[in-house]
Amino acid sequence: MERCVLLLALIGFCSGQSRLGSYNLESSVSVSGISSGAYMANQFHVSHSGRVVGAAMFAGGPYYCALGNALTSTGPCMQFPSSIALTPLKAYTQTGANTGLIDPLSNLARGRVFIFSGTKDSVVVQGVSKKLEEYYASYITTGSIKTVYNIAAQHSMPTDSYGGACGSLNSEYINNCNYNGAYEALNHIHGGLQRPSSSAGQSGQLILFDQSEFFNLAPAVTYGMDTAGYLYVPTACRNGARCRLHIAFHGCVQGREKVGDKFARYAGYNQVADLNNFIIMYPQARSIITNPQGCWDWWGYTGIAYATKNSFQITGVQRMMLRTMGQY
Rank of each mutant, 00 (worst) to 15 (best):
R242T: 02
I84D: 01
R110N: 02
W298F: 15
M40P: 08
H155T: 10
P88G: 10
A220I: 07
A85G: 00
C252E: 06
S15G: 12
S32I: 12
T72G: 09
A153K: 08
M281C: 01
A137D: 08
R244D: 00
Q293V: 12
A241Q: 10
G50E: 09
S212D: 09
Y183W: 06
P234L: 00
A218S: 14
S144Q: 13
S117D: 05
E184K: 11
H246S: 09
W298G: 09
F214C: 03
I289W: 00
G268M: 14
L25H: 08
L169C: 03
A228E: 04
S15W: 14
L245W: 01
R265I: 06
A218L: 13
V124I: 13
S122L: 02
M321F: 15
G251M: 07
K258M: 11
Y230E: 07
Y135N: 04
S28L: 11
Q284W: 09
P76D: 07
V253I: 15
S83A: 14
C243G: 03
G316W: 14
G163S: 12
E26N: 10
Y230V: 06
S287C: 03
T302L: 02
E172G: 06
Y306F: 15
H250G: 10
R19V: 14
V5C: 12
S30D: 04
G16Y: 03
V125C: 00
